[in-house]
Write a protein that binds this DNA or RNA. Sequence first.
RNA 1: GCCGGGAUGGCGGAAUAGGUAGACGCGCAGGACUUAAAAUCCUGUGGGCCGUAAAGCCCGUACGGGUUCGAUUCCCGUUCCCGGUACCA
Length: 974
Amino acid sequence: MEYNHRETEQKWQRFWDENQTYRTDISPNKPKYYVLDMFPYPSGAGLHVGHPLGYIASDIVSRYKRLKGFNVLHPMGFDSFGLPAEQYAIQTGQHPAVTTEQNIARYIEQLKNIGFSYDWSREVRTSDPAYYKWTQWIFMELFRSWYNKDTDRAEPIETLLEKFATNGTTDVNAVCDEDTPTFTAAEWNAMSKRESYEITLKYRLTYLADAVVNWCPALGTVLANDEVKDGVSERGGYPVEQKLMRQWMMRITAYADRLLTGLDTIDWSESLKEQQRNWIGKSVGASVKFPLVKEERRKGGEEERNLDAVSPSSFIEVFTTRVDTIYGVTFMVLAPEHELVPQLTTPEQRAAVEAYVNAAKMRSERDRMADTKTVSGVFTGSYCINPLSGEKVPIWLADYVLAGYGTGAVMAVPSGDQRDWTFATHFGLPIVQILDTQKDLDKQADNTKEGHYINSGIINGMTYQEATQTLIAWLEERGLGKGKVNYRMRDAVFSRQRYWGEPVPVYFKADPDGKVLPYLIDESDLPLELPAVDKYLPTETGEPPLGRAEGWRYHPKGKANTSPSPETGEGRGEGYEYELSTMPGWAGSSWYWYRYMDPKNETSFASKESINYWRNVDLYIGGTEHATGHLLYSRFWNKFLKDRGYVPEEEPFKKLINQGMIQGRSNFVYRVKGTGVEGTAPVFVSQSLLDGRDVTPLHVDVNIVENDVLDVDAFQRSRPDLAEGATFELDGDKYIVGAEVEKMSKSKFNVVNPDMIVEKYGADVLRLYEMFLGPLEQAKPWNTNGIDGTFRFIRKFWRLFYGENSDGSDKWLVTDEEPTPAELKILHKTIKKTQDDIENYSFNTTVSAFMVCVNELTALKCHKRAILQDLVLILSPFAPHITEELWAALGNEPGTVSKASFPTFNPAYLVEDAFDYPIQINGKVRTTISFAIDRAASDIEKEVLANEVVQKWLEGKQPKKIVVVPKRIVNVVV
RNA sequence: GCCGGGAUGGCGGAAUAGGUAGACGCGCAGGACUUAAAAUCCUGUGGGCCGUAAAGCCCGUACGGGUUCGAUUCCCGUUCCCGGUACCA
């Protein structure tokens, strides 16, 4: 009987479910191993064959580690808040919870079909109130914390209040808002409760701020930078504009340095770490103040040129990484959006400046970035003073300076910076050499740090190091500047003007003087559940969808609710207004790996016991698209939770692997141009007969193509719109289709559903084939064609155990005979290869080793239990169903293959007594000769030289040299 | 532009402390079994040359150099492809 994959696989999947085979509990006497997949967003389209790639790899590692004696935590859940469900709700009125539930059910069914060893009792869903209760709680903890730069960690807000009460702001070294006032202890203690509370809001790790955000009018929501691609929303592709809005922010910048240095402690790919480093964008330099020229201020005339009113005072502040080049500054460049521009513009220059600023506004960010060749800029008419040289420096505007980075102003040093050089050359501004080593300044800038300074006042003759130190000290002494570290990374916007997300556990209360401030709801009121709304759109007044929830107001327990609505003044006694925005997509995914440790806990996000046992993720597998989003935010929250003593590890994901994307392989049919239109019958030509004919390629469903041969009948049946009355020009009796690698997508008719593969070939075959396709981290196209190889392998493997009696019934072939050395060698070579390859995540080569093993055992007609039982075990991580079946057939307790031990590799079986040496003449192999392993090199030399083939190549000459590498090669140099 | 990764048969890919390039699989070709097909099994399969055959020779890991007894592997330069990105002061 042939192996029946359908019956067997379903049987074991049911068994595992019913017996909770993969249920995991804490067992302190076993080492732990935590294998995590990036949990999916359950989309309506279901899984395609590309999705499970990483899940299969992680499942193999999980099963392998179990056999190796580890207690393995391997859970799965769903990142179930998100835009598509909300978009669907807007269109259909269907509550997102309903569609999400349906999609999850389908995902679970598909996942269970593939035989993953997840502990499903630990499943989490971010949209479940029992889950997001703790997302909200973490938000509250962030609100209740500040970042102490002295201890370099987050602390409860109470430690800040103590400092204020005893010493005011003197001892406080915190990450906080720019406009935070300084005060004494006495001043602090004299403040009203409201005043002091308002001050603490500037220190908390989550805070309200007016932020320029990516506002997407079509989606009615704010998007994170990484959700915007090329000026349109990543999901949906709608236009996005910049808008100033009051938003909840996360002070992730407080952690910038730790996020950077932590990268050195984790085992992630270099490219991924580099992406995070670039995103954080640390640069070390100095900020310098350039005072504005006083005479300019005087003769400015009446028109708003009162520079004394300019905030904060009369200077331009720049950030530079090359303060040593300050004597080379010949002009100043501001971003067109810089706040001082209106005040700095002289009446003569006003028209030109306004034209330039407007033109810059019109150009999209994209245009400005794409166009780096054109030089543009305009002079404001004003000057500032170089604080070092005392020279007058003209102030220009140019759009190569970005408002959002540094201070939005640059001190231009054309001799050292290429952009400044280009600008100076274009506008005829002077270029001053400042280092004796700079050369070819008439052709380009030279950014060298070598040599000694010239034309440079107090640093003349110094080297780079000396000059930098001297200048920073000089500037700090005079309050004109200081050493500064600048980061590209900004604080993260945490608000979304949408419905399907976690409500923010905050309400607003107006104080007697009318000032409205945010307050946390009481912890006992968590979870703050999403209210029902009539529509999932913003309100008519532009409020987020939660503004539609009727009577949704906060009523603190045991307190009078007397605050009127801050907007309307109405609603006295009806409770307080809630925050109406919801949390972003990354909130729920920034801590989920902890919830798996203790998913049902109602008193904390996970028990201390479980967290201290499982600690962090040993292996994390997922896509590279989360490089700067999820993976950065998760590290941020993890560090915060560690600071506050809730978790023990600084980094959440020790080892991370990015699985490569599985691309689609599209198939095409070719319709002759001019046919199939206006009632004419279409003519399709086989790809093999094209030969330059004028045709239109059309996508054809890959599921009706086999080995690039089209099932013509199926094509005509499934696409009557295309193939009605068509004629086909065949190559022999075959229509050969064309092929191209594209993204896997419905519109390209190249989606392959894993369910179909499982039905036809079995889950074990799907698992083996996905691994066999190539290295895990590499992107590769899916081509169902090759799957026959792994299908045959499984059946060949089965035939080592079962044959057929003459009446057609099953014949059990396994015997208890003693294995031969040759059989043991095959087995142990495969054991070694399997464990080495799994430890190196090289799954494709493991599958090939299994094939070799089964081929060799088949050739030897080996049916011995002593060999096959171990082979079942080492194959079980890859093909759990068939091995579970055979494990039971071998007489083991059913369902226990995952609870056995990985066979021990015994090198003794691999010892060879002879080696076939390739014999090279001048580096080319001419023959091979077998020598005993312990044969002396001099003996080998002699025998090689005596060899007939070697003699022939020597042509009677004496060899120059003979290289003998034991157990490798012999090379005779003539 | 910069950063990271890559380029090996018709195809997916193997082999790097430098040591027989093309494991394994697909596809293809031929054969066995079968009334036939499917399934299965066997043989061959980088290109070229020479041969009836056996055997043998030459070329070959994107391209051009180099180091070495020996290079897919190391070094220098070039081209192309994929991913990322920031005009970052």
